Amino acid sequence: MIQKICILLLLFSFGKNQTISKKEYHYEYYANGTIKAEGWKSGNAKVDFWHFYYPNGKVSKQGHFNQNKKNGYWHFYSENSKLLKEGHFVNDKAEKWWIIYDIATQIIQKYQYKNNKREGYSLLYKNNTLFKAERYINDKKTGEWTDIFSFKRDNPNASL
């Protein structure tokens, strides 16, 4: 009985001019019939988790959408399924830390984004060892360090 009342109250609260849009699982295909993408749609908008595929069937990227905009953590892969990069989007713009990998899936670079521009630190690696750090403000390099000790000395509050 309580469930029926809650459902009726929920429906009543939407009023005459509002509708509840339902989500449907959606597939997109290449011309040759192989799957190109799959995920949830609400109306015409991509929402929630989506997978995108190369023509060979391997995953090319995957992540969340909110009203056709990338939101949340995304992963990008090569055609042979190696992780290439990963990072966070907010309203289709790169934000926070991003990580770039080489073909052996070793980290080669970490960098910070704010509003789709480099903002903060960029860390470069060779053989999984940090060898250079850079600082960016509004997508412009404003500092560079070629050893971790001088970087830490000059940036004691840097969150890495």
Rank of each mutant, 00 (worst) to 15 (best):
M1Q: 15
M1C: 10
I2C: 14
I2D: 12
I2L: 15
Q3N: 15
K4D: 12
I5V: 09
L8E: 13
L10D: 13
F12E: 09
S13T: 08
Q18E: 11
T19N: 15
I20Q: 15
S21D: 13
S21Q: 15
K23V: 08
K23H: 06
E24W: 12
Y25C: 00
H26F: 14
H26V: 08
Y27W: 10
Y30V: 06
G33N: 03
T34V: 05
A37Y: 07
E38V: 02
W40S: 08
K41R: 02
S42C: 05
K46C: 00
K46I: 00
D48W: 02
F49C: 00
F49Q: 04
F49I: 01
F49A: 01
W50D: 00
F52M: 07
F52P: 01
Y54E: 03
P55S: 06
P55T: 11
N56K: 07
N56V: 04
G57M: 00
G57Y: 01
K58P: 10
N66T: 14
Q67M: 12
K69T: 08
K69Y: 09
K70F: 04
Y73Q: 11
Y73V: 02
H75S: 15
F76G: 05
Y77C: 02
Y77A: 02
S78E: 02
S78C: 00
N80F: 07
N80R: 06
N80K: 04
N80Q: 05
K82T: 08
H88A: 13
H88Y: 10
F89T: 00
N91M: 03
N91Q: 06
D92P: 07
A94I: 11
A94F: 14
I99G: 04
I103N: 15
I103H: 10
I103F: 14
I103R: 14
T105W: 12
I107C: 02
I107H: 04
I108E: 04
Q109A: 08
K110W: 01
Y111F: 13
Y111L: 13
K114N: 13
K117G: 07
K117W: 04
K117Y: 10
E119S: 05
Y121V: 03
K126G: 08
K126W: 06
K126Y: 11
N128A: 13
T129D: 15
L130S: 02
L130Q: 07
L130I: 05
F131G: 08
K132I: 10
R135Y: 09
R135G: 07
R135P: 10
Y136E: 02
D139Y: 07
G143I: 01
E144D: 03
E144W: 05
W145Q: 03
T146E: 12
T146P: 14
D147Q: 06
D147T: 08
F149H: 14
F149I: 15
S150Q: 07
K152R: 10
K152Q: 10
D154L: 01
N155S: 04
N155V: 01
S159P: 15
S159W: 13
L160N: 03
